[in-house]
Simulated assay, not measured.
Amino acid sequence: MTRIGSRTTGRPTLAEVARLSGVSPITASRALRGVSTVAPALVEKVVAAAASLGYVANPAARALASARSHSVVVLIPSLSNQLFIDTLEAIHEVMRPRGLEVLIGNYHYDVGEEENLIRNYLAYQPCGILLTGFERSEASRQMLAASGVPCVHMMELGGEPGALSVGFSQQCAGRAAAEHLIARGRRRLAFIAAQLDPRVMQRAEGFRQALREAGLCAPALEVLDPQPSSIGLGGELFSRLLEQAPEVDGIFFCNDDLAQGAVLQALRQGIEVPQQVAMVGFNDLPASAHMVPRLTSIRTPRAAVGRHAAQALLNLLDGKRVVDERQDMGFELVVRESS
């Protein structure tokens, strides 16, 4: 009887998959990782052989053999935000043809939790890391620098010299919202925000700058809540704002779900939008185009950020020269009925 499995574990090995499918172990490995250069017919044979043997790849062993895994780590602050879901989908589309596995870490907007994820994932010797923004603990910075693992930062522009970033100016986006409301003749402008992560506060600063330049800055017309952003919270914060400043006639929300909740709350309270108060959201989530009234929002390039960040990381892995350390994907103000 022919023995199947490694001497130590008894599990089927890559060599056995290769032998059964009539290809080299390297070709078998590439076929199972989805590398696009392997002919479809060979992929089919290798996959069938692996299935018949019950073979499951051991990424830890592969990393030890090559001193580098075929995994890319993506660290994001939320899996409940559509922004990051779209970004992750785009990253997968770029990485999959190269046979790279995408390991996702969700740190819930907590720099301590991100630090633990970085420490744990670096033990797996990833070939690259995609990070969200630039704000993290000093320990995280030191670990990343010492690891030598190529990194690309997403969603923001800037950072230290040599740091690659793919995103857009959050501050300019906040300024654009203010300038739009001012151009619509609104003068009692407010900012409503939740979560209060660094990118939210950058938008807030851009909004404030535009108001100061127009002589309209009123710090009291801000409602900032550290809770996670949601439709329900948007309605609550809108009501809270009107209690504090019933004369407000224009509002910029840090995220569309807050704005959507405010639109619904205004409907319940008989407040006309935009006649009494104009509203502008952020991210242009799918439901915003179907609200009543349809929501004006700043459309963010979340999929483009994912694609370009992933490609930038691949370029680093391929040893290609970096032409532009800051890739600005821009944003678009989508004007609809709410403003």
Rank of each mutant, 00 (worst) to 15 (best):
S288T: 14
G270H: 11
G261F: 08
R326A: 10
T296Y: 03
N315S: 13
A262I: 12
V273A: 12
A259Q: 01
L316T: 09
P274R: 14
Q265N: 07
L317I: 07
L316S: 13
D318Q: 15
N315G: 09
D249P: 04
A312C: 13
M279I: 15
E325K: 05
V273P: 02
D328L: 13
F252A: 10
Q276R: 15
A278N: 06
G250T: 06
A303M: 11
R268E: 02
E325N: 08
Q275A: 15
Q269H: 09
D318C: 14
N283L: 01
G261I: 07
V322K: 14
Q260L: 15
L285C: 10
V323S: 06
A289K: 12
R321F: 04
R302N: 10
Q269M: 12
H290V: 10
E272F: 05
V322N: 11
A309I: 10
V277N: 03
P301C: 11
I251K: 06
G319D: 00
D249W: 05
V273C: 10
H308S: 04
H308L: 13
N255H: 08
T300M: 14
A289Y: 01
A259Y: 01
L267T: 01
V277F: 03
G270S: 14
D284K: 06
G319M: 13
C254S: 15
G270Q: 11
I298L: 14
D256A: 10
V323I: 12
R321K: 15
L267K: 12
G319A: 04
I298R: 06
A259S: 05
I251Y: 07
G281L: 08
K320I: 00
A266G: 07
N255T: 09
V305Q: 06
D324L: 12
V273S: 09
H308Y: 10
L258V: 13
